[in-house]
Design a protein around this nucleic acid. Structure first.
Length: 357
DNA sequence: CGTTTTTGACCAGCGC
DNA sequence: GCGCTGGTCAAAAACG
């Protein structure tokens, strides 16, 4: 049960807007560090050409703050499948796979095959957060919307006590369930449930279609915090763990997180750990990683931030933010092809298109 | 004994 | 309307 050590995280950050796709703020990245932790991030110019890379002997979060001059020169030149990753480091390893952002607005100006904006997305995010500056707080509001307070739950339960069925919690009808912003992390790890310092309770597990690996559902155990995360392994590459966070923590970072080795609390920030972790030699050597990109559909609008640090930061969940890690200047573009969890993120229509090809 | 995980059942949304 | 699937619930079991 205790969380395992040494996971190297990279991530894909997905941000969607259902009601106002064109105004969707650019997404960003975030990462967590896990016992013995190592942070790093791989990205690449054009996500494919491999000329530009993040990485180095810096932790991931350090990268966010330091590599501000990173530019992805040919971000949308191609959505070709990426080169294959080099072999992972010995046993303990995980390695960065991708860093992903979505921004339909920015993308429309780009000569990309991804310039067709789908009418709707399966991924419903907080519609109140097209502006980056309000992302964090409004997300919390959204969380309140669909995560009833405990008191509210109690009331509802009283009303439904006569129900004989298991599903005691009534769900509002005629009201489409709103989803909170999601942030997908792709992690090369042997460990399914990565310890990000927060406490999670597993509340469900489901078999994933077309995948031998189940998907696990976790909820933050902090009272009133409706943050959820889902963890599943990629059927394409079992060594890859896809972790999706939904919502944002509404509480300070746990004082005594489990398996928090390698996570330093930054006294200047009450909401979020600082990650100051050394990087072993074998990871430094892996700076030359090719970006690992999934190509899911040409119609998916994806873009990256090239200079707007504000929208970057605003898209990162609070719990993954730290003021020291502001304003990275770019990220790679990636598309996901995962058939499991990511089918939620990629609209059905696009998935279908991808299938037919 | 309190907390967490497991697991089968249930519900809602979507596509056909 | 029906079936499929994702997501959630909650009782029981397991764990520390």
């Amino acid at each position: 049960m205790e969380k395992k050590k040494e996971n190297l995280i990279s991530m894909a950050n997905l941000r969607f807007s259902d009601e106002n796709p064109s105004a969707a703020a650019a997404a960003a990245v975030a990462a967590t560090s896990f016992g013995g932790s190592i942070f790093d991030m791989a990205t690449g110019a054009g996500a494919c050409d491999g000329d530009t890379k993040w990485g180095s002997s810096l932790g991931f979060m350090d990268l966010l703050g330091i590599h501000q001059d990173f530019i992805a020169p040919s971000l949308f030149d191609s959505f070709q499948p990426p080169p294959i990753l080099p072999p992972p480091p010995p046993s303990t390893s995980s390695e960065p796979l991708l860093h992903q952002q979505l921004d339909t607005k920015q993308l429309q100006a780009l000569p990309s095959p991804a310039s067709i904006v789908p009418e709707s997305s399966e991924v419903l995010n907080n519609p109140a957060t097209p502006n980056s500056s309000s992302f964090s707080s409004s997300s919390n509001e959204a969380a309140n919307d669909h995560e009833p307070t405990k008191a509210e739950d109690d009331e509802e339960e009283e009303q439904d006590q006569d129900k004989t069925k298991k599903q005691l919690k009534p769900k509002k009808k005629n009201q489409k369930r709103q989803r909170e912003p999601r942030f997908a992390f792709m992690t090369k790890s042997e460990v399914d449930h990565l310890d990000d310092g927060y406490r999670w309770r597993k509340y469900g597990q489901k078999a994933v279609k077309n995948s031998p690996f189940p998907r696990s559902y976790y909820r933050c155990t902090s009272a009133g915090c409706g943050v959820k995360k889902r963890v599943e392994r990629s059927s394409d590459d079992p060594s890859i763990v896809v972790t999706t966070y939904e919502g944002q923590h509404k509480h300070p970072y746990p004082i005594t997180p489990r398996g928090s080795i390698g996570i330093n609390m930054d006294p200047s920030s009450s909401f979020g750990p600082s990650f100051v972790v050394p990087q072993p030699q074998y990871l430094r050597q892996q700076q030359q990683l090719q970006p690992y990109i999934y190509n899911s559909s040409p119609s998916l609008n994806i873009t990256s931030i090239t200079s707007s640090g504000s929208s970057f930061n605003a898209s990162i969940p609070d719990f993954l933010q730290d003021r020291r890690f502001n304003t990275p200047t770019s990220s790679s573009v990636s598309l996901l092809r995962d058939h499991g969890l990511l089918q939620d993120i990629v609209p059905t229509q696009m998935r279908k298109e991808a299938k037919e090809q």
